[in-house]
Design a protein around this nucleic acid. Structure first.
Lengths: 339, 339
DNA sequence: TTGAAAGCGCTACCAA
DNA sequence: TTGGTAGCGCTTTCAA
């Protein structure tokens, strides 16, 4: 087996200089059409693949994107959202010979160190920012590091980076109207981590809609983890005026809520309607199956990767707005026994 | 802000040649102790970080490891095992300035292409092989590509790579005895994907133990997905001689089994005991909480990364055997109402 | 034990 | 439109 072909081999085979092969590879102008074709043919024939490391040495590209996820080491579980999101990112990267560098870190300090390290070592061309926080420090950090990024969700403060957003307002409205139409008037909301943008947005919408419907808002704070979701559910069910329906800010909490209701001997959904907001697969395999909103994580991944690559390659990229999330009614919501 | 320091800057600051800095960086002999200290001091003072891309150009290292995961695009969910495993890998890599390249692919063909691409582009120094199959083709593939790897689990056929294993036999025995001691005599097993090593091993142990106990084996095939787990449960519960306890090859199937039981109006665990085998976090938040085996995914990650790095750096690495999995009894198993 | 120089595979610049 | 040459930041000879 011969050694891997290099740009030199291609140049020789095509009877040109390395410079022209480089221009051709990068789709730059200034190469005669015929020459370009000859070069491409030679490259194909040899099965040449440009070495990303060598390329990066001069143009300071890494041909990869970075995803840094912070998770409590106690419960390293990762949202169901995650895998499909990564698969979507991959789809875009693979087509360009790029890769994804993933880091799962246990705390904020390690998180910052990791951003710095990947930047300093020229490991990535940009970062995908998920779980966007209120006034997210990562935006400032990446700016200082002279890096690129794209955010999932729209940052509150000004951000120099493109934002991918998806409208959940309509879906939340649909969900609330669905419950109201079934006859629910005591609809509670278990929130996500309120430092996160989308958690706060969901809470705001919930509050506004209860006001519009003329019913009481009943909010229990939680942080997206099943544990806090379960506790919030217990507090709600302990109330004298316990709700007949609970809307959770994500699916894992809703599933934990179902468990609490079963534990208390409630008959679901007659005694209590439950809904999530993430469209996870697991929601189809719990009992009763979980009413939720759809989410299309792979779509988020594709858009985020494309947007970030555009930014890296052209210096700018527009914000992207994904199709609105819609209601997925399943068996966990029904008319209340007592409204 | 000045540009990043290079090896040249360090050499100049220490008053030596680049060559000596390189020898020092790589901990090679042939540098006077005093010189070595001077170089290290200069490097620290300048905050120098060697550029992995440039290093790789000459020594053909990528300073990264690859993890390629194949998942059905229909249900891109990723095992709960996954996140903690990656975090464990990270812990080892970060300490050495290395990174993890992750790819989630939808089918076998893309999987092979991805292995080839990461190898050809010198993107990784080795691969972490999870979800080991019977006669796994990836081992052959990576050998052909002249790559390194480590397997989670022991391959049946001869493999040139180190294997990380963990004994589940004892845990499965504990689990079966736990059920038997509670009074169960009809204990069924819902299997994992039998092309996978650990699924087959779990089935074998189950079968052997039923034989030893003198009770009937009752096996329903599934593939680790909640959907097949739910269906297998339905088939078991439809039997005239339905089991009083079901042992699932992983936790997600067990959780789906709980849902099916609830759907049928069974009182858990009195009417049916259920157990998983993965020690997932979610098992603590379902109702009833799930009896399972512990697993320590982060430990798998650390060992796998360490072993693979040893192989890459020294040319050989021993097999590693992790501490045996133990029973975690929770609320989903109890004495049967009717044995 | 050290320094000088060549080279890894590419990009970029300057002439021709 | 092309070729030649000089790096990018490191490692690895080979002499001294």
């Amino acid at each position: 087996m011969a050694r891997k072909p290099t740009i030199e081999d291609v140049a020789r085979a095509a009877g040109v200089s390395k410079g022209l092969v480089s221009l051709t590879l990068n789709g730059r102008p200034g190469v005669a059409r015929a020459t370009r074709e000859r070069i491409n043919a030679a490259a194909d024939a040899l099965g040449w693949r440009p070495n990303p490391g060598a390329r990066g040495l001069t143009n300071h590209r890494a041909y990869s994107l970075g995803l840094i996820v912070r998770r409590d080491p106690e419960t390293f579980e990762v949202d169901p959202f995650f895998a499909a999101f990564v698969a979507g990112v991959e789809e875009v990267l693979a087509a360009r010979g790029m890769v994804l560098v993933l880091s799962i870190v246990p705390d904020a300090q390690t998180e910052v160190e990791t951003y710095r390290r990947l930047s300093a070592d020229n490991r990535v061309d940009g970062f995908l920012i998920t779980d966007l926080l209120d006034h997210d420090p990562r935006i400032q950090l990446i700016s200082e590091l002279d890096g690129s990024a794209v955010t999932l969700g729209k940052p509150d403060a000004g951000s120099p980076f493109p934002a991918i957003t998806r409208d959940y307002d309509g879906g939340i409205y649909e969900l609330m109207m669905h419950l109201h139409a079934l006859g629910h008037t005591r609809i509670a909301h278990v929130t996500g981590d309120e430092r996160m943008q989308h958690a706060r947005r969901r809470l705001e919408r919930y509050t506004q809609i209860t006001k519009d419907l003329g019913i009481d808002a009943l909010v229990e704070p939680a942080d997206f983890s099943p544990e806090t979701g379960a506790n919030a559910t217990r507090r709600l069910l302990d109330r004298a005026d316990a709700p007949s329906a609970i809307v959770y800010a994500n699916d894992p909490m809703a599933i934990a809520g179902i468990a609490v209701a079963h534990e208390r001997g409630l008959d679901l959904p007659a005694d209590l309607s439950i809904a999530g907001m993430d469209g996870t697969d697991m929601g189809r395999y719990v009992y009763p199956t979980l009413t939720t909103l759809d989410n299309d994580p792979a779509g988020w991944g594709r858009s985020a990767a494309e947007s970030l690559l555009a930014l890296v390659e052209t210096g700018s990229a527009p914000h992207v707005s994904l199709p609105a999330a819609a209601l997925i009614p399943r068996a966990s919501t029904a008319a209340p026994k007592r409204p």
